[in-house]
Computed example of a mutant assay.
Amino acid sequence: MSLLRLDFSLFPDASAGAEIADLVEAEWTAAHPGEPVVRRRPGTDPLPSDAWALATTAASTPEPDRTAAQREALALATRLAGELTGADAVVLAAPLYNYGVSQHFKTWVDLVITGAGGPNPILEGTPTVLVTVRGGGYGPGAPRHGWDHSTAYLTRILADVFRADLTVIERELTLAATTPGMEALRDEASRIHKEALAAARTTSLTPTAG
């Protein structure tokens, strides 16, 4: 048994998403003592920005004609895909940045898809938890309702492309406690925070039967 833990925050040690993912990981570790946890932090240990282009061109280039950079990028893509296929459970912490998908997540996805030989269901049946956090409020009635262009994409990739057995834990208003002008939202932010932590403690990373 192994757990793959991925953090896409620029500040994973102080990340609101990492706090929740830590609880999910702790519950898994308690249920599987001594089993390995594989960690990758693309937010602070970023994947090369040109790796996807190199891996993609490598895949369509005869092996003898590939450059060293192409071979290295294709090996990285294969390794990233292998980390997913080799995991018995996965937890990802991915924040909303500038209303969209983290560039680190997008680079990772592009490389994984290349390494898997296309958009394949490489997580089919694998219990996976996506933790996604947002500094503001984006729900119905909020001034920026609909501005979250990340969560739907993250879910589409993990659940519909990779076919993970996906649970999503969301927390928003993470900046309410420290941002002037958001004082009126602090009670709501506290409630959302507590609900997210409770969800993390009770979320199972056990495969769903059937």
Rank of each mutant, 00 (worst) to 15 (best):
A200D: 07
V37P: 00
E183T: 11
R156E: 15
A159L: 12
N98P: 03
I113M: 07
G137E: 02
A81R: 03
L80C: 01
D88V: 08
D160M: 06
T61F: 02
R186H: 12
D65Q: 15
M182E: 08
E124D: 15
P119I: 10
R40L: 12
M182A: 14
L96W: 05
E172S: 13
A18M: 12
A30R: 14
E188A: 13
A68I: 03
G118C: 09
P64Q: 08
P207Y: 05
T132E: 04
T107R: 08
V112N: 00
G118T: 11
A93G: 13
E19I: 13
F162L: 09
T56L: 14
A93V: 07
D165K: 04
G100T: 05
H145Y: 15
E172I: 11
G135Y: 04
A81L: 04
P119E: 08
Y153I: 15
G118L: 10
E83L: 11
A21L: 06
A68R: 03
H145D: 15
V90Q: 01
L54T: 00
T155P: 03
A116I: 05
A55E: 00
V91D: 04
S102Q: 05
G117D: 06
A177K: 11
L10G: 14
A16M: 11
E124Y: 09
A164R: 01
A209Y: 10
D50G: 01
E170K: 09
G34E: 05
F8S: 02
V37E: 01
E27C: 12
S204G: 10
L54A: 01
V168M: 05
V24I: 14
G210Q: 12
F162S: 02
D50N: 03
V161R: 03
H145S: 15
V133W: 06
A18N: 13
D45V: 12
S9H: 06
A116M: 03
T206A: 11
T61K: 02
V24S: 03
S60A: 13
H32G: 04
A200T: 12
G115C: 02
S49V: 14
T61Y: 01
F8R: 04
G181E: 10
A58S: 07
T85W: 00
E72W: 00
A53L: 11
T202N: 14
V90I: 08
F105G: 04
L185S: 13
A68F: 01
I20V: 15
T132M: 04
G82D: 00
A196N: 08
P33K: 10
S2G: 10
P12Q: 09
V161Y: 07
L54N: 00
A69K: 01
T167M: 07
M1Y: 07
L4N: 02
A189P: 02
